[in-house]
Structure formats: structure tokens, C-alpha cells
Design a protein around this nucleic acid. Structure first.
Length: 361
DNA sequence: CAGGTC
DNA sequence: GCTGG
């Protein structure tokens, strides 16, 4: 692709954002009728599955798909493509995922239904394998915002400029394989630098081929991925879900861990037992359910900081009306659906404050 | 204290 | 055990 053209993009990255959105780029409208279902772009790109996209003042999003600049926005719940290769963009945003079928498979359980009501339209992307693998190797014990800053730092330092984009492409593993631990640490990786470097080298010398292993069944693929340094069971599940379209894979991080405990009314268990429970309880699209629960819980906490009463003192049952209204006429203009409470011990439908929940842990 | 790993 | 939002 044309990524070797001399970049019009300066190093300071402050390139003609206005030009990228100027009328010289034809605006194509991707409608639900010809290309699949609707999408909630904000929720999709803010849910911590991909980290380099930037929301602009006008609400559109700019990012990269491999080595190609992409600009998209949302209109009437449809994806609007302003710039980028349409076929690949549509595939990336997974507009063919059968959302209604997926929603029908969501568990009849208050937290899942609450998350569904709040996050309708959020899609799980089909991400490039290496970029996704690398991003989640750097993710351990990091906040989403910092994973993003590490990704951008690595792109800026090691990646190639992309015509029409203000950020660089993610460097191929062949490039990172030749990097050094100190250089990677300067991108903010800390102890993760060594893992990313070792993984890049394993891929560069052909020990593991991220494309070739895609045909492995999920359990085996998970084991294969865990051969990479820095990839444990949680990160492996993230890669399975976000880069190998294994929609039943359930990454269990601290958020999902707490939520699963709440679903089990506080009953603990080994990691394997919780994973088994998650698959039983969350169903065939467990990975989708997981992503909705994750994003909703994070947003609920953010809201709680602003207005604690509005989020955490809502009993589960109070969501029922909104839920029913939703199902009645599949409209999803609910951007302010009530959040669920995360409680470890639920006595009836009593509200539990976040502080109490924490103490009960 | 944070989307864990070894 | 690294490190920043």
C-alpha cells in the first residue's frame, strides 16, 4: 500500500486535521441495509479493546487500520466512512456481527441486561493480530489511558508515518525485534518492555506465526498464545476475542472478576472455576457480554465519582421498566440508562454503597 | 491503584 | 515489580 510515499505529515504530529475532514474526501454512507447492522462508535472505541483512536471535536473518529488512515463518524446509528478502504473498514468494525442474535443470547440477569441497555450498538472489532497482541502485552496492571499512551509512544518512536494520518502505523514485529529494552522503556513500558521485545523476536524468527495459528481451535490457540512472553490466560483471552474473533472468549480482569463474584453472590472460586462459571452463565457470546459488563462498570464508576447516588444506590429491580421498554421497540436512544450496582453480598434488592462493597471484599 | 504474568 | 493518570 502507499505507505512509503514521502509523508506530508510532520513529526510534531500536528498535521492538517482540518484537511483530512475537508470535502475533498468523498463522504460515503454505509447503511444498515447493505452492510449490516448499526453501531455505537463512541462506545465501541472507548471500551478498552483498541487504544489508538482519537475523537475529534466534531464527534468523528480518526485512526489507523494497519497502514491506512481511517476517518469515520456515526449518523443515525450507522457508520459513516469519510476516509479509508470501505471493505476493510466494514470488516474491522464487524458490521456483520448479528447483534440482535447476540443480544438474545445475553443472560436474563440484571447486570448483563443493565449493561446491554447502556451499551447497545457497541461492537467487538476485528483487530490486526500483531497490534492487538502487542497492545495487550503492555496492558497488565495498567489503566486504559496509559495503555493508549504506550501505544502512541511506540508508534511515534518506531512506526512509519502514514499519509493522511496524524499518528504513525504500529511498527511490525520485525522492527520491534531490533529494538532495545531501554528504548522500549522510554515508551513507558516498565517491566513489560522485555516481554514485548521477546515476543517480537519469537515472531520475527518464525517460532510462532500469528496468521497460521488462526485455524487452531480456541483452547489450543489460547495455549499457543500463552507461549509468548507476557501473555497469560487473561491477555490470551483478550487476543482471542479481539483479534481472532473467538466471541466466546472471556478475559477475566479485576472488573469482570468482581462482577462474576457478584453474580455468584460472593461465592469465590479458583480462576478455572470462575472461567467455567463465566462460560456457563454468559452463554455462547460470553465475550460480547463480558465487554458490555466491563465497559458499563467502568462508565458507572466514572459517573459515580460525579454523582454517587445516581449510580450505586440503584437497586437491580429498578432497571426492569427501562429493560422492558427497550425490548418492546428496539430503539436505542438510551444513552443514559441506569448503571448496575457492584455488590459482593446482595441481601434482597437492597442498595449497597461502593465503599461497603469494597469492604466486603 | 491500575483490563496480570512468571 | 515499572510508572502515570
Amino acid at each position: 500500500m502507499p505507505s512509503h510515499c514521502p509523508a506530508r505529515v510532520q513529526k510534531n504530529g500536528r498535521v492538517r486535521l482540518s484537511e483530512a475532514s475537508s470535502p475533498k474526501f468523498e463522504t460515503k454512507r454505509v447503511t444498515a441495509t447493505n452492510l449490516g447492522g448499526p453501531i455505537d462508535l463512541d462506545k465501541t472505541l472507548l471500551s478498552g479493546q483498541v487504544f489508538h483512536w482519537t475523537r475529534r471535536a466534531d464527534g468523528s473518529w480518526s485512526g489507523l487500520l494497519g497502514n491506512e488512515a481511517v476517518v469515520v463518524s456515526e449518523k443515525n446509528e450507522n457508520l459513516v466512512l469519510h476516509q479509508g478502504p470501505d471493505d476493510r473498514v466494514v470488516r474491522h468494525f464487524a458490521l456483520d456481527h448479528p447483534l440482535e442474535e447476540i443480544y438474545a443470547a445475553f443472560p436474563e440477569e440484571p447486570m448483563s441486561q443493565s449493561a446491554l441497555a447502556a451499551c447497545r450498538g457497541m461492537r467487538i472489532l476485528r483487530q490486526p493480530r500483531w497490534e492487538c497482541t502487542a497492545a495487550f502485552i503492555t496492558s497488565s496492571m495498567k489503566q486504559v489511558a496509559h495503555i493508549r499512551s504506550m501505544s502512541l509512544a511506540i508508534r511515534s518512536r518506531f512506526g512509519e508515518a502514514v499519509d493522511g494520518s496524524d499518528i504513525n502505523a504500529y511498527p511490525p514485529f520485525e522492527v520491534l525485534a531490533k529494538a532495545t529494552v531501554p528504548a522500549l522503556r522510554e515508551c513507558g513500558l516498565g517491566y513489560r518492555a522485555e516481554n514485548l521485545l521477546k515476543t517480537a523476536r519469537l515472531l520475527a524468527d518464525g517460532t510462532i506465526d500469528l496468521e497460521a495459528i488462526a485455524k487452531q481451535p480456541t483452547a489450543r490457540l489460547r495455549q499457543t498464545l500463552q507461549m509468548l512472553p507476557g501473555v497469560g490466560v487473561k491477555v490470551a483471552n483478550c487476543i482471542l476475542l479481539f483479534a481472532y474473533e473467538r466471541l466466546d472468549a472471556v478475559p477475566i480482569d479485576t472488573w469482570i472478576h468482581r462482577i462474576l463474584l457478584a453474580m455468584r453472590k460472593g461465592r469465590k472460586g479458583t480462576p478455572a472455576q470462575l472461567a467455567a462459571y463465566a462460560h456457563r452463565r454468559l452463554g455462547p457470546y460470553a465475550g460480547y457480554v463480558q465487554q458490555y459488563l466491563f465497559h458499563h462498570a467502568r462508565m458507572a464508576k466514572r459517573g459515580a465519582a460525579l454523582n454517587p447516588a445516581s449510580v450505586f444506590s440503584v437497586p437491580f429491580d429498578s432497571h426492569a421498566p427501562a429493560r422492558l421498554a427497550l425490548r418492546a421497540n428496539l430503539r436505542w436512544s438510551i444513552s443514559k440508562a441506569p448503571a448496575f450496582s457492584i455488590v459482593v453480598k446482595t441481601a434482597g434488592c437492597g442498595a449497597t454503597s461502593p465503599r461497603e462493597a469494597r469492604h466486603q471484599k
